[in-house]
């Protein structure tokens, strides 16, 4: 299943936040979206998943929804969005309870995704007992349980410390190598984008427009810290973003989410 964005434009009140975004995401690739703060990258992701509607333009799906996918467009949120009153397994089973599955099938899916994300020993734990990294692993397990066609990841590692972030990036790379999932990955962290993105979409500051799309044709598994080519790409991206980031930093915020 592919994703197609056509002429997405959006305003909050008088402020235009996104302007004329055209983008295609094809199956099996990770597209990273980067840009200075307030450029509307998270808003764009909410449009893609249908949580908000753009003023102009449309988000289209092409190709059949993969069979067995319970929730084709599935988010992973920055702040994990786990229910604090539910244990790890109950948090995963929450998103399966509304689907016509037998209790045994549900249990099988929960056990499977917890196994795949290395959480089997934490089934009964409550979110408050887990570290940030483990919480995000639970959120990823929950996302996987509905067999998404496209994962919409909204700064999934931004709430984590840098060491945990490294570990989770390794996990995501390993996961992609196994499952070849499709993802839109919003981040402000250039190292994450360079490590995980097949393509990197650079947005300008408000109103967000696509400035450029950088392609990195190195296999995710072969990307390592200190790779001169990746470093060069990261430097290039920073060159592109620095002035924008500075200008965005000096803007006076009004009520733009």
């Amino acid at each position: 299943m592919d994703l197609l964005l056509r002429g997405i434009t959006h305003r909050y009140g008088a402020t235009e936040v996104l302007s004329g975004i055209d983008l295609a995401v094809s199956e099996g690739e990770i597209v990273c979206i980067i840009g200075p703060s307030g450029c509307g990258k998270s808003t764009l992701l909410r449009f893609i998943g249908g949580l908000e509607r753009p003023d102009e333009g449309e988000v289209l799906l092409s190709g059949p929804v993969p069979s067995g996918s319970l929730n084709p467009l599935t988010y992973v949120f920055q702040d994990f969005a786990l229910l604090p009153w539910r244990s790890v397994e109950a948090n995963v089973s929450l998103v399966l309870e509304d689907h016509p599955l037998s209790a045994a099938e549900r249990e099988e899916i929960v056990a499977d995704v917890l196994e795949r994300t290395g959480l089997s020993d934490f089934r009964k734990a409550l979110p408050r007992q887990l570290s940030g990294g483990m919480k995000q692993r639970v959120a990823i397990a929950r996302a996987l349980s509905v067999r998404p066609a496209v994962m919409l990841m909204d700064e999934p590692l931004s709430a984590l410390d840098s060491q945990t972030r490294e570990l989770l990036m390794d996990d995501l790379v390993a996961l992609w190598q196994r499952e070849r999932f499709t993802a839109c990955y919003v981040t402000h962290n250039l190292a994450e984008a360079v490590r995980l993105g097949h393509r990197i979409v650079v947005l300008s500051r408000r109103p967000g427009r696509i400035r450029t799309i950088v392609e990195i044709d190195r296999d995710l598994g072969a990307r390592e810290a200190g790779d001169p080519k990746l470093d060069a790409v990261q430097r290039e991206l920073w060159q592109l973003l620095r002035d924008e980031a500075r200008a965005a930093d000096r803007e006076i915020a009004d009520d733009v989410a």
């Binding site: 998943g49 949580l51 929730n71 599935t74 998103v95 509304d98 509905v146």
Partner: peptide, 8 residues
């Protein structure tokens, strides 16, 4: 939002 995004 999370609940909505999972189609609850």
């Amino acid at each position: 939002r999370m609940g909505q995004s999972f189609g609850l």
